[in-house]
Nucleic acid binder design. Sequence first.
DNA 1: CGGCAAAAGTGATCCTACCAATTTTTCTCC
DNA 2: GGAGAAAAATTGGTAGGATCACTTTTGCCG
Lengths: 234, 234
Amino acid sequence: MQVPGSAFAENKNVRSILEFIARRELQPGQRLPSERELVKLLGTGRNSLREAMKVLEAMGILDIRHGSGIFLRKAGFQPGQDAAIWLVVHKNEICNALTVREALDLRAIDLIPPRDYPAVERRLQETLDALEGVAPVGEALLDHDLEFHNIIRRASGNELLLNICVALTGNLYDERRVLFGRKDRVELSLREHAQIARAFGQGDAALVKQAYAAHLASTRASIEAVYPIPDANH
Amino acid sequence: MQVPGSAFAENKNVRSILEFIARRELQPGQRLPSERELVKLLGTGRNSLREAMKVLEAMGILDIRHGSGIFLRKAGFQPGQDAAIWLVVHKNEICNALTVREALDLRAIDLIPPRDYPAVERRLQETLDALEGVAPVGEALLDHDLEFHNIIRRASGNELLLNICVALTGNLYDERRVLFGRKDRVELSLREHAQIARAFGQGDAALVKQAYAAHLASTRASIEAVYPIPDANH
DNA sequence: CGGCAAAAGTGATCCTACCAATTTTTCTCC
DNA sequence: GGAGAAAAATTGGTAGGATCACTTTTGCCG
């Protein structure tokens, strides 16, 4: 866990670079002028410019490639309007990350309008079917699992919720790898996924939530079995 | 919304600073050696060092104060083990931010052990009492409101949940300012806060949750009245 | 046309010098 | 001796130049 403070757009140079990108309407993938040119265009020193560049690189907004140039990775961040959250999640807070993800995942279900259930069921079934012919190996399973849950998160219509869950899942990388290396756990997960998809097909909101809650509980139990929580919430 | 991507610890200089902090076992609030000294200690140039410093400052790990020094804000971040999550919340996603915050706030209540209810009630009452003598002006009210909810989030024992909620609240700065400028809304909020505190005092979990849910719903209604949601979730 | 080497362009690092804000020390005056 | 102001020292902030390392482009040669 830890901190944030979206206090970042305080940096004058960072802001001026973002404004430059917005003014030129640069698109993702496009190259920015070279450092030596930008220095003239923005009227700043090369050091200050580079410091700001490094911050934007760490944020994932810029992609700096030695020898070839600086490229825009993500477009249109507005320092004045938008907010940036930088969370530092400590490894010994697996339990907290799990709890947050569960809370958001369960809420996502409530947000899905019942009329979308058939479409959700179809998409869920597709990812399950795609896994049929494939040998159940680590990477493919990790991808399937993430995509399965993302379908539901996306159906909630809340992209922020989706992004937070994805970020937290990325934080649980090691744990998930270990989990999906166990044959019994994999089979259980797939059975539970199928059950969730079926519940969507039946159009029963209560059943969906129950099946999803059961899957979350079972997942948590498996993780805690492998990684005993040193200091549980209470 | 936008992206996560915790890819950051790639930076060699950032890592060496973090390792330095870990090696010296520096605690939050402590001062690091001056830039010119660190340059000698880490065997790097001042520019490269500063670039890394700026990244860590943007992440909220360091606090750089012109003229006085560089201070550690958050301790012990381990590049290999821990994860940094960067979220960008767009301004046109007020509705999504509200939804996420509500989901986490409600979950926080479930996480509070009933035996802690009396302590929570006492702390909530203190912030309410502190507001008594004071003229109900904007800033003081914003602070009270944030602290009131943070007491509950803190009581959940989940610091990650607390941090996300705080960040999202910061993102709703404008909306909250407008809201707390309205006398009727302020009085309603304070009444609801008092009711929540009372529910904790009575030790009734269901009552607490009901009162809290009512407060969240009422707050959302007020915000939506002022800022009509262009594209509601559903 | 293809391949290879040179040249140009770009970011990476280091250095020096100086500016700006803060803290500490020193000195003056009462 | 104490208080306050001035001076000095410390610290981060900015600028620019020189050079290294990597990539892309150019152009020569076969």
